[in-house]
Design a protein around this nucleic acid. Structure first.
Lengths: 115, 115
DNA sequence: TATAGCACTTTCCCAAAGGAAAGTAGAATT
DNA sequence: AATTCTACTTTCCTTTGGGAAAGTGCTATA
């Protein structure tokens, strides 16, 4: 028996990794979370803190991050309405991922330069 | 001075994270690395171990992973030529990222189900 | 009164990602 | 001789991501 056991099963890892990637993959989501996390809470400030991001893309990504309960949009004041973006506490659970990517990115750049 | 210090600087984190994302972001690269990592070394086995991946996409991603020195393609034998894919040692540096994503994905699925 | 700032939205366009289905070339198997 | 296996490739087509540029409605400032 078990003659047709051709490939190793790795779905236990692949499935949750894909679940995570569905939420945070893409060019902009983690940079936005990082920027809001260090204190940028106004649309224009976030935009200026992330190189080359356009307002269209930033608006779209902020909406998606709101839907995923990672960022909250707060309306401040009455007449001169101000908007403030803050991380939801849930976004802090992404910290290990962000640090793992940051460390790897720093090391990778070194490796590519040395070549 | 420093009156125009409007937004907080987070480029120290954003830049390396973007460097990492440039290499490993996308739907398929990490799943392929996971699959090859557990021992799937034949094209067809890798394909069958990753739900819904098509041969076209798998071939393209394998080429990119080779270029990034994360996977090596080995030609075995002479007349009935066989091909084997293996992780380069460098791919093991991705382990912390994979585990961070896996843990987060497991937790995230729980959170979404409970809602 | 005119200009600037804020938080976006809208339109147009292009390139990359990726799915479906079929094909291919050689070798092995029945 | 016909089918199967392996490792892909090719074609076609749709979706998604995202850049450029301009516009919008409101408020604040000079």
């Amino acid at each position: 028996m078990a003659q047709k056991k051709t490939h190793c099963d790795c779905l236990n890892t692949i499935k949750p990794v894909r679940d995570a990637l569905d939420v945070i993959s893409g060019k902009w989501k983690l940079p936005i979370i990082i920027s809001v996390g260090v204190g940028n809470d106004r649309f224009t400030d976030i935009q200026e803190s992330i190189p080359l991001i356009t307002p269209k893309v930033l608006a779209k990504e902020l909406k998606e991050l709101e839907q995923h309960k990672l960022i909250k949009r707060i309306i401040l004041g009455e007449y001169p309405v101000k908007i403030s973006y803050k991380l939801e506490p849930y976004a802090n659970t992404l910290t290990p991922i962000i640090y793992a990517l940051k460390d790897w990115g720093i090391n990778h750049r070194k490796k590519v330069m040395d070549r």
